[in-house]
Write a protein that binds this DNA or RNA. Structure first.
Lengths: 209, 209, 209, 209
DNA sequence: AATGAATGAGAATTCATTCAT
DNA sequence: AATGAATGAATTCTCATTCAT
């Protein structure tokens, strides 16, 4: 049972496939999924449409691949940022900053694609589904992070806390990066950080840095 | 120079126009902007495409109208909810609940269209622009609300606070209504409320209801 | 529930639809179903492809319409020929000739389309199905015709007789009209007529004309 | 000037070529000429498309080869069946049965391909041409057979008789095997046999088996 | 004013065939 | 000789929009 789409066995094939993925990501970022057609993607990848369709069943499947790769890169960034330092040695504010920064960093990966990723999350059930899985992983990681400093926390429902914190961060990041928030970025991030800190941590802690 | 699209002055014309708007809203909600075509809208509105195009320059313009009307309904709901009671007479928790409820109510208006509204916010600059204006109004209103209890607040940058609070609420509402959050709604709302309360208010207040 | 394809309400629409049907029949006759594309059909009908697809869901559906109309014309011709005279007043040979001629006439309607009709009968289940229904009607009519002279017949299983007679005629007609039989038409028709006469009728009859 | 397509001289090459022919026959049978693509054929034959095209100039040429081989097998079967016994020793009914059986047997070879063979006979001039040649051979053989019992025959134009008899048989076989005739096979075959017997043979003969 | 017929650019996709490795 | 990557013309079909009646 041979697959309908080609699985490259030769170096050349792998390169072609990758160039399509790269071209697609650029174009989806710039012009959106609906604003980009397959001919254009093939053209920018320096490839014929024939090749396009021998590597990807259709534009949607290609999008899913780009999307998944993007989400994987995002999650890697987030995990890397959150695991950079021994969390339990850090002060509250630093921990909160680290959480925010990790998400900020993930959204700096490719702001254009990030925007289109959201479009598709809201528009397409399959994309939404995958997005949900990633969210769950990110939240699980955040729960893990919080558990390491559990004795300093005031919140008890760590899962719910992780979820609302991450919602707050993500939406604020989008408001800054995508929606041109009318307030300066720093005021928003400061407010965000303060909100999260007060929510999560007990007050007793010495005003750490 | 007469305008290209008709401005109905008679009762009949206004009804036709409204039926198109209603049909469009239903279809955009169910199938999205790209998934709905003008013939379908006209058909559901019980109108010929000829008429359709004499009332609306094109599909995008129609969407904008539907979108604007929707956002106006949303903002009315939010303001109404937040002004229902004399805010300064309420306890902290009640105020926070009122804020959350007002936004929840706004998103209950039409969950389907709400979803598509987000799609278009992320996808289309013009929609994004209008969305931004509404956000600003909502945040201004929230600032106003907060100012009424300013002496009980711990936050000082009310504008930034309003922005992050509203981000947190909106994203959490979406995670519940649109993204099928894996946690039960109540745990999320409780966590959200607690986060907002601790962020905004001084601790000293008696544990009010 | 509006149908997907347009049902013409205006005179113009009916003319357009008919011109597409006519163009399709010509082109299918000349170049076959697979050898003709929708653009070509639209072009010959003097119509845009847009119109083409608003009247016919796709090429296959159009073919079916042309095919059905053609088969109806055929069956009308066959019935008309067989009912032209009071059958019981005719001699054996005349009856047989009338049967053969009726089928010959039906295949003279449009030899090109007749050929393509056979292609599709063998190739496509839906076409085969409809073909089968028509065959059944033709055979039923032949049975009816035979029953009018039943006392002069030697065959008893009229249905089977009608079927094999009509098979013999049809294939011989095809061998003449489509397959360029190496023998002159008259020798084939004479042999065919003799075969049918001897099969169906008792010998006792005076050598009628 | 070497031929464009390879003529295999080694065992390996011959096997490859045969496997392509076999795969093509199966696929053409199941999905038709137009419904089968070259990649699929190559795939089923366990061969690269590169190889495919080094053995066969194109898909049509491959079809012709499969078709010719099929027709050869058919003709062999027919001849073998008709020559199985010394014809002049048989009774009329047996002879007729033998003729019918020989053609039935030929169409049992591969009903699926038989169908597609007819499609292409009607659709393609080159196929039609070859089909005609085979028909002529079959009819010549039938004439030969009949000549062996010429004194018992009533027909004089043996060539025309052979042609119409074979037409009757073939179409009836198709109506049974391909077109799902509404009558049971046996009634059709009985009627067919009777028709042919009465046509060909003098009545005087003793009711032989 | 209303209707719905007509348009045609443009999008997705397929597949026979070639050719570099 | 064999492979399978690459090609791109060709085809089907959609849909926003215009315009004659």
């Amino acid at each position: 049972m041979s697959p309908k789409t080609r699985i490259p066995r030769q170096q050349r094939g792998i390169e072609t496939r990758d160039s399509i993925l790269a071209a697609a990501r650029e174009l989806f970022s710039a012009k959106g999924f609906h604003g980009t057609n397959s001919k254009e993607i093939a053209g920018r990848a320096g490839v014929s449409i024939g090749s396009f369709y021998s590597y990807f069943k259709n534009k949607k499947v290609l999008f899913m691949e780009v999307f998944k790769a993007y989400k994987q890169e995002q999650i890697i960034r987030i995990l890397r940022e959150q695991n950079r330092q021994r969390i339990e040695t850090l002060g509250r504010a630093t921990i909160v900053r680290a959480i925010i920064e990790s998400i900020l960093a993930a959204h700096d990966l490719s702001p254009g694609f990030d925007r289109e990723a959201m479009v598709m999350c809201y528009a397409d059930p399959e994309v939404k589904e995958y997005h949900g899985e990633i969210e769950r992983q990110i939240n699980a990681q955040l729960v893990e992070t919080l558990r390491q400093v559990e004795d300093r926390l005031r919140v008890t429902d760590l899962e719910a806390a992780a979820a609302v914190v991450s919602n707050a961060v993500v939406m604020t990041v989008h408001s800054i990066k995508i929606f041109d928030a009318p307030l300066p970025r720093d005021r928003l991030i400061d407010a965000l950080a303060e909100m999260i800190r007060r929510f999560l941590f007990k007050d007793s802690e010495a005003p750490a840095g």
